[in-house]
């Protein structure tokens, strides 16, 4: 390197460099901690589903209990169906889900839980009335349930959780028939 290539530069004071570096490291640490706190646990296949609260719509409670946890269903097979009143594909499967619920309801071994994703209470009530749905249904308050279960953040999606609370199956999109729902659930009833 020749002398001509040397460019004079004004040095930044050491304390300034240290301060800037410390500030950036602190900021990154703060963002990292914040993101870690904000991140909720997600359900994984063949793993226990992280517990969540269910606040049922009035008239759609399970055993007249307005508030429950997923863990309260231990010992039963749970089908969680995520839907919304503005979702057209959800309307395709709604009658089939109700028919399947009528089939399983008396046995007491299977529970259907509808989870209403980012919906208005009026829209939800109209939808539930329109399709004569009677199985337990709850709003997805602050997306707390879908953030644990819903992988694609789309509707409709359905999940089967076995008697031990382990996530076993996921169905993305609407069910085509009652038989498909039965096959989806029965595999985990044994």
């Amino acid at each position: 390197m020749t002398e001509e290539n040397i460019v004079p530069k004004r040095g930044v004071a050491l304390w300034t460099q240290i301060t800037i570096f410390a500030f950036l490291v602190g900021l990154l640490a703060l963002v990292g901690i914040g993101l870690q706190r904000a991140q909720k646990p997600m359900a994984e296949f063949n793993q226990p589903v992280p517990d969540f609260d269910i606040f049922y719509y009035e008239g759609y409670e399970y055993n007249n209990t307005p508030k429950m946890k997923l863990s309260d269903f231990q010992g039963k097979v749970v089908l969680v169906n995520i839907w919304a009143s503005w979702c057209k594909p959800c309307e395709q499967e709604a009658p089939e889900l109700q028919e399947a619920w009528q089939f399983y309801k008396e046995g007491g071994q299977v529970v259907f839980v509808g989870v209403d994703y980012v919906d208005t209470p009026i829209g939800a009530k109209q939808y539930l009335t329109k399709f004569n749905i009677t199985f337990p249904n709850a709003p997805d308050l602050q997306s707390s349930i879908s953030s644990i279960l819903n992988r694609n953040m789309g509707v409709p999606e359905s999940y089967v959780i076995d008697r031990q609370g382990i996530l076993r199956s996921v169905k993305i999109g609407p069910f085509a028939s009652v038989n498909e729902i039965k096959a989806f659930v029965d595999a985990w009833l044994e």
């Binding site: 919304a84 208005t120 009026i122």
Partner: peptide, 14 residues
């Protein structure tokens, strides 16, 4: 323009 947003706007109106 989605249906979900139309419902939300109606909820605000109500």
């Amino acid at each position: 323009p989605t249906e979900a947003c139309r419902q939300w706007r109606e909820l605000i109106r109500q």
